[in-house]
Amino acid sequence: MKSKATTKAEEIRSLEISEVTKSFNHTRVVDDISFDVEPGEIFGLIGPNGAGKTTTIRMIMDIIKPDTGRIRVFGKSLSERTKDLIGYLPEERGLYKKLSVLQSLLYIASLKGLENRRALSRANELLERIDMLAHQNKKNEELSRGMSQIVQFLTAVVHEPRLIILDEPFANLDPVNTELIKEIILEQRGQGKSIILSTHRMNEIEELCDRVFMINEGRGVLYGELSEIKARYRRNSVFLEYEGELGELKGVVRRHDHYGSTELILDKTTTPQAVLEELIRRGLKINRYEVSTPPLNDIFLQVVGKANE
């Protein structure tokens, strides 16, 4: 169960993007997009390759400037100061090979405005958290790929940013390290930080995100609470695992048998609640009854497919 922190109406938004456009060589890469990120939420930025996600992130990071529109971070226009409030993990990444783990963390933390003593204690705290304190003096080139990726992730959070942007943070990570990063992301959210998660892995978006913004060909195509979006794209169906004879059910227009379960497609006027009541009345032994929600992956494919038609 996700524990999204309460968003007070008067609380300043972590990020506001309003009507932002960006073109390269007469091609509009980002086309009039708008979305907000609230404090204490994990926000999914999703879209196919080349949709404009990285350009959007680079505009938030003030690496490139938008042609039109407005970007505000914690209520302020982008400046060198707002850069210090953001932690960023780019999709393709690396570390200074000759620097040690600790030196890398301290250098990035110092560039983000963290005072030396605080940076050292924060780096030690994070390295201890991931059980890498013993490796703090190892050169980055001596680290395994997994360890190196974890250290790269730490460079994005070492300076205690209030907004963390993670571009494909789980790419090429083994399950153990994936879980470790997820735990840290959830801890950060628990501390009221905002996290923007850009990934192709829809299961991770479903698992972690409170709200999503989907971009396709530079335009925003989906935006809102994940549960609300899923409800919007829901097929009116339920999954049922049972023992006994099911027979005909009123309001069920079709049945799909899957391995060990049956999906009942309901007509527009029948609710899952009504079907469940009928099944209980019939005395059927029910092992599983689940209101079907479409996987985000299906919604993604549906929306992108529709846009490309």
Binding site: M61, I63, E80, K83, P90, G94, Y96, L111, K112
Partner: peptide
Amino acid sequence: GEEKENRLIEILLSSVSTRQ
């Protein structure tokens, strides 16, 4: 070249200005 190849340049540019 190293910073471009290992993409550290993105982290640097997201932390400091081009002039700095």
